[in-house]
């Protein structure tokens, strides 16, 4: 008997993954496949940026001022290897975009970790314990729901950035924008989780766990949370699209990441100034990358929602 075929007679892992219901629904959803392909390419490019980017745009020594303001390679005057052209300092636009995507994606993921973590924790507390604390939590969520999330993010990000002393603005830019986006979206998760807790709390198996002497946090983690992981996952995926868009909007308006740590939004902001002088590639390519990124996340998120939890539709 070889090690490759376990004694239980179950098919090997790749076959099981291939036949899993989720994979099957994925194979039947062309939109999701397209979205996932785009995402793999974009995330791959972002992660591998230090190795695959044609130049390092932050290594000032490698910048070639003679190669500044070059148009994309297919336009007359474009030069290899600057496929998407260069900016005023001679930095390669493609490399800038790859590095910018790194920042945009990590801020987006961090922000969703904050909003989903905070929202799940508060939703669990509000649903399981109820009482005064629960009431206050859900009131706070209601109050926040009165306002569009982008307005809150703008307010937190804007005040956070401008109230800091100048020398701290650049160092604390990432935490501030992560907090701004995370704090503006936690009520979505809190509502979802609280609703699920209220349903599950009354069921017999939770009562059984309680009688068996399990503490409230263990019950929440082991009995209740598994019922909402799918819904949280769907919301979190779609929320990445919001966070990436929100980050770029804040950065574009000047309350996000500074030019020393450019995200796609910061690139669009700095490039926008050159739109009227004809150097359109500085703004159009980062903008299209941003749209493609959000589009791909939305495609995958939509599919995941339909596949995992049809009730959420």
């Amino acid at each position: 008997m070889s090690l490759a075929t376990p004694r239980t007679g179950r098919p090997a892992l790749p076959a099981r993954v291939w036949r899993a219901p989720l994979t099957k629904s994925f194979r039947r959803a062309p939109a999701a496949i397209v979205g996932a392909l785009i995402l793999v390419i974009l995330i791959g490019g972002a992660v591998l940026a230090p190795w695959i980017a044609p130049t390092d745009p932050y290594d000032l020594a490698s910048l070639d001022l003679f190669a500044s303001r070059l148009p994309p390679i297919w336009v007359e005057g474009g030069e290899w290897p600057y496929i998407l052209g260069t900016d005023g300092q001679g930095a390669d636009v493609l490399s800038l975009i790859l590095y910018g995507m790194r920042t945009s994606l990590s801020v987006g993921v961090l922000a969703v970790l904050v909003s989903s973590g905070l929202g799940t924790f508060l939703g669990l507390t509000a649903g399981y314990f109820g009482g005064l604390a629960g009431g206050i939590i859900m009131r706070a969520a209601d109050i926040q729901f009165t306002f569009p999330a982008i307005l809150l993010a703008l307010l937190i990000g804007g005040l956070g950035t401008t109230l800091l002393p100048t020398h701290l603005q650049a160092t604390l830019a990432v935490p501030i924008i992560v907090a701004a986006l995370g704090l503006s979206h936690w009520p979505h998760f809190a509502r979802l989780v609280r609703g699920a807790v209220l349903v599950e709390k009354t069921k017999d198996y939770v009562a059984a766990a309680r009688l068996a002497g399990r503490g409230p946090w263990t019950i929440m983690r082991r009995q209740i949370l598994p019922n909402v992981t799918n819904a949280i996952l769907v919301l979190a995926t779609l929320d990445i699209a919001f966070a990436v868009m929100g980050e770029s909007t804040l950065s574009f308006l000047g309350f996000g990441l500074p030019p020393t740590e450019p995200s796609l939004g910061t690139l669009i902001r700095t490039g926008y100034a050159y739109l009227f002088s004809g150097e359109w590639w500085l703004v159009i390519f980062p903008a299209l990358t941003l749209v493609l990124l959000v589009f791909a996340v939305n495609l995958v998120g939509d599919w995941l929602r339909d596949a995992l939890n049809p009730r959420l539709r």
């Binding site: 699209a241 868009m245 770029s248 909007t249 574009f252 308006l253 669009i268 903008a287 941003l290 749209v291 959000v294 589009f295 939305n298």
Partner: peptide, 8 residues
């Protein structure tokens, strides 16, 4: 349409 940020 949903993936297009207003400023873009």
């Amino acid at each position: 349409g949903l993936s297009l940020p207003t400023f873009v």
